[in-house]
């Protein structure tokens, strides 16, 4: 599979994602905080976004089940993890607190870098530091030379 085809298709997908975030107002933290603030003037915008995105994904993924492999790659990398345990729950709680503190999750934070505001840069750098911090946990250090297969297995 041609690497440049792969990169071009990823660019298109990223573009659709970014366009969707900006169009739906999800790059504006005020809309996120407005949704999370259920005791204030509740803003349901994020619900519309999530319903449309998840609805499209459910239909699209279902259609893919008839295929044995992707159009431009050798295999589907569906996540294999299904275990619901302490790691998942505590990760979600920590993530949620950070999300509520400022109104950015990773996608909108990165997309907002084009707005050129220093707060966004500070957030993104801190987010990368947080990811690195996780890597320093005992037993979580990734081997230096991960194969592509291992990368996928590790992504859960």
């Amino acid at each position: 599979m041609n690497r440049w085809t792969e990169c071009f298709l990823a660019l298109i997908c990223g573009g659709l994602f970014g366009a969707g975030l900006a169009l739906s107002g999800m790059t504006d933290p005020a809309n996120i905080i407005g949704f999370l603030d259920i005791t204030g003037r509740w803003n349901p915008q994020l619900v519309f976004v999530l319903v449309a995105a998840v609805g499209t994904a459910i239909v699209g993924f279902r259609l893919l089940h008839t295929r044995s492999r992707p159009f431009f790659a050798s295999k589907f990398h569906w996540p294999e993890a299904s275990f619901i345990g302490g790691r998942l729950i505590s990760g979600a709680v920590i993530f949620g607190i950070g999300w509520g503190l400022y109104g950015y999750c990773p996608g909108p934070a990165l997309a907002s870098l084009v707005y050129g505001q220093s707060h966004t840069v500070i957030f993104v750098v801190s987010m990368l530091a947080g990811m690195q911090l996780f890597q320093l946990l005992p037993g979580k250090r990734a081997p230096a030379n991960l194969s592509e297969a291992q990368c996928t297995a590790d992504r859960r």
Partner: peptide
């Protein structure tokens, strides 16, 4: 906020 989002996303997968 950034630290928690980054760390939590990795821990929670």
């Amino acid at each position: 906020a950034g630290l928690l989002v980054g760390f939590g996303a990795r821990l929670g997968g």
